[in-house]
Write a protein that binds this DNA or RNA. Structure first.
Lengths: 174, 174
DNA sequence: CCTTACATGTAACAAGTTACATGATTAG
DNA sequence: CTAATCATGTAACTTGTTACATGTAAGG
């Protein structure tokens, strides 16, 4: 259901094609949601069939037609209902934790490698966050609440990533 | 694949039935992995069919037979391979973030309710962590590395939950 | 010459959820 | 009397992944 909601949100802001949405998932929405192109195309088609979206096919010379999707009143109603309802708890799935529970079967070098790779990846993410913050949110207090909201999600991303990094350092000291 | 690995880990430590594993997912493994009983039973059966597990059926008076699963050499090999291979990146899916990206369509009272409910839930979790830590890990330095490893996962759980709580407070101040 | 961007899709599979089904025992 | 515990399962469905398929144009 949440993929559907995310598609409604982004299409409400700006109509677009499946391909466009894929690009948004890779850039502005990267730390919110990710999905493969197949999943997006399939879901958009189902949503159109369910009357949540309108679709206008725009022919192009020497390229596949663009199918531009646009939210309908019924889609907007579904989005409003989703926003009003509290989210359920998200299931816990931490494969890395599982490895810790098999500590003595987990080779020390694999462990080392895993943790340092994760560390590098998290540090990269921190830099990406910093770049986004600098580019889009250099003055958060000067923005409207609506413009500032995405900044909050960035802030949480930073806090969580910092917590991970501090923890990895603690573990690597062993 | 990760569910399979978690089942291998827990069965390697102690053979047991699907029901037993479900209990472990509700207690000691609660912040590592969760799965429904249907998923567990189905996966155990597939793993037995694949030769990763042995199954001994223990008849019981006036109760369904217990099917006690036990890891095989081939299962152990699969586990070792999984432990040695680094984990792939986990896909990003943050439905709560999505709501922030629809800030002006998100009613203020629903927002308030959502965040305070989450806050309460996280505080409960912190208490659960504290209770576990007190009961099992009152002296982490006195434990063997293998015994201490699960404590690290608890520590990260605490750090992440604290980060969430600090963030919610920041957002609620608006 | 090779890769990336553009733009869509089918098909098969794996993973996870929800509903339904059985049936005795024990605790409140 | 009701709910929870024990213990398993079938069936239908939704969600997400992987592989395969097509075809042009621009840039290095």
């Amino acid at each position: 259901m949440s993929l559907r909601a995310v598609l409604l949100i982004t299409l409400q802001r700006d109509p677009g094609t499946g391909y466009d949405i894929l690009q948004r998932f890779k850039t502005g929405l990267a730390h919110v949601w990710q999905a493969s192109h197949q999943q997006i195309y399939r879901e958009l088609d189902k949503m159109r069939a369910a009357g949540l979206l309108d679709c206008e096919t725009v022919p192009q010379a020497e390229r596949p037609d663009r199918k531009v999707y646009c939210i309908t009143a019924s889609g907007r109603a579904e989005l409003d209902a989703w926003l009003a309802a509290p989210l359920g708890p998200s299931p816990v799935r931490q494969p890395l934790f599982a490895k810790f529970f098999a500590w003595d079967a987990w080779p020390a070098d694999a462990r080392q490698q895993e943790l340092t790779a994760l560390q590098a990846q998290l540090e990269e993410r921190m830099q990406a966050y910093a770049a986004i913050e600098k580019e889009w949110f250099s003055d958060p207090q000067g923005l409207t609440p609506d413009e500032r909201a995405p900044w909050h999600t960035l802030r949480l991303g930073q806090r969580l990533t910092e917590a991970w990094l501090a923890w990895i350092e603690e573990v690597l000291e062993e």
